[in-house]
């Protein structure tokens, strides 16, 4: 057990780098296992330093540079191989917090999630950004958060009190205890088509302004829809989901063509009621984002449920990353 006061590099060979500059000493902890990570996180907090957990760094490192965040100690999780595992059970998929978007992009067990991962950022971002980082940063329109919100994902954590799990909404609302870290997310295996769409200032490397995930479960006769970028956190569109449940012909998994427009209209209404709303800002007026949410939702809905009869005219998926806005 590593404790503050007795923490010496020699005591934990290879796991600690002391960075000294300008008369101050900062500690970089580099655990190899989840157990070590929990111990080092506790030790870092005990030392009284401002601690940052480092996943891929795509959000944290620029935030440190700009001064938006500060850190006197960093627990870097890149070398924790346990966190880089993804697996499938009979009903569920488990994705380690250290799994990158590039790892996810080729995952055949979850084609919808793979397509969502493929439209995140650029090659550079996908190679480094991680699932755990997406949860830790919790950007309002974060690509993965919107998908995971629609997927009813659960967040698995580890702390000195042992492993724990909580729903994604609870995780996003309450955050993590300071001595805990995310180890994985768990979601149901796909039961039908899943589409993720986004609108951004630029296709690549820029965060989404508005994002939408529609997941169809043909076994449980259920459709879920989440919108990112209208609220402070991604929000589920319950009213539109209930409309879909009643409207879809579950024997074929299809709907009548006008249903997509109605679905989109319901999402616009619901997006306007999301609280707390994301304030108006450089990311576009709130009306624009409500409208965009409806357009994306109608389009995603049609792509999920018109698949047997072909997509509607003028709305064909294009390019290698057809799951995204191209």
């Amino acid at each position: 057990m590593v404790r503050a006061g007795v923490l010496r590099p020699a005591a934990v060979p290879g796991r600690v780098v002391l960075v000294m500059a300008g008369g101050t000493t900062s500690t970089m902890f580099r655990p190899r296992t989840v157990g070590e990570a929990v111990e080092m996180l506790a030790a870092a907090h005990d030392s009284g330093a401002a601690v940052a957990l480092l996943g891929g760094g795509t959000d944290l490192v620029p935030a440190l540079r700009s001064g938006e965040r500060c850190a006197e100690a960093v627990v870097a999780l890149r070398r924790v191989l346990e966190l880089r595992v993804r697996g499938a059970g009979a009903d569920s998929l488990t994705i380690g917090a250290g799994v990158t978007y590039t790892d996810l992009a080729g995952w055949s067990l979850s084609p919808g999630l793979a397509r969502a991962a493929r439209v995140v950022g650029s090659v550079q971002i996908r190679n480094t950004g991680t699932v755990g980082g997406a949860l830790g940063s919790a950007r309002p329109a974060g690509d993965l958060l919107t998908f995971l919100t629609a997927a009813d994902a659960e967040v698995l954590t580890a702390s000195p009190r042992g492993p724990d799990r909580m729903s994604l909404p609870r995780f996003l609302a309450d955050g993590l205890a300071p001595d805990a870290l995310v180890t994985a997310v768990q979601l149901a295996r796909p039961g039908g088509p899943q589409v993720y769409l986004k609108i951004g200032e630029r296709q690549a490397a820029y965060p989404a302004v508005v994002s939408c995930a529609v997941l169809v479960d043909r076994v449980r006769h259920r459709l879920t829809c989440a919108i990112g970028g209208v609220g402070v956190l991604p929000a589920r569109m319950g009213q539109a989901e209930r409309y879909a449940r009643d409207e879809v012909d579950w024997s074929t998994g299809t709907v009548s063509p006008p249903a997509a427009r109605r679905f989109g209209d319901l999402v616009v209404e619901e997006a306007a009621r999301v609280a707390p709303a994301l304030p108006e800002g450089p990311r576009g007026s709130v009306e624009y984002r409500w409208h965009a949410a409806g357009v994306l939702a109608g389009r995603a809905f049609a792509r999920c449920l018109h698949h047997l009869t072909g997509p509607p005219a003028g709305d064909t998926a294009r390019g290698p990353a057809a799951g995204g806005q191209r």
Partner: peptide
């Protein structure tokens, strides 16, 4: 840009393309 958006600082990190502005230097040891 220092935000991982422009690619001007691209390097190969352990053989994988990365924006060096999003990598913490001490973690690249």
């Amino acid at each position: 840009c220092e935000q991982g958006r422009c690619g001007a600082c691209s390097v190969l990190l352990d053989g994988r393309l990365a924006a060096s502005c999003t990598v913490l230097a001490a973690d690249a040891d």
